[in-house]
Amino acid sequence: MITLVDYDAGNTYNLQKAFAYLGVKTNLTDDPKEILASEAIVLPGVGAFQSAMKILKAKKLDTTLQKAANDGIPLLGICLGMQLLFDSSSEYGITEGLHLIPGKVIELPNKKGFKIPQMGWNQNKLLKPSSEFALLENEYTYFVHSYYAKCEPEYVVSEVEYSANVPAVVQNKNVFGMQFHPEKSGHIGLEVLKTFKERIVFK
């Protein structure tokens, strides 16, 4: 069973609907036992890093997710859920993240012609052709964010060009992150979720 981590994140229901459309049953829970017993974990997220981390900690889900990742359970963070996988974020002061992928979450640089947040469809450039997510090459996916992950290229599967090169898909072993919203990225977004299920979870 794929577990959706329940912590009042904005896009949870839409992710659930996307999985349901693909015929994939998901279990929405904040119970550490259920999370650790699942075949894969999806961490949704919309909103601010600091308050999301606070809720995760209050529910003791930070240590649960770290244990799950160390146990080798595939973990996919989406949007803010991806950002939470990193070491820290500078949104409203420095907040520590889950330390599952080395790197920092910082504000998108303010450059002329680039509105913040980045909101809309941007084109993926694939950096890791051997990735399960190679299907994203040159595909447009839907982004809404003001902060982005700055990390070593070895963790970046694909990126998009904006006021910085923005990692769109990141990976550290069994831990994956997507800055875009696959649940809002039309056909290709559904293919990405299907790939996660078929090639990573139940391979």
Binding site: K17, A20, E183, K184, S185, H187, G189
Partner: peptide, 8 residues
Amino acid sequence: VSRQVFMP
């Protein structure tokens, strides 16, 4: 709509 159509 949001059960069948996956865009903003």
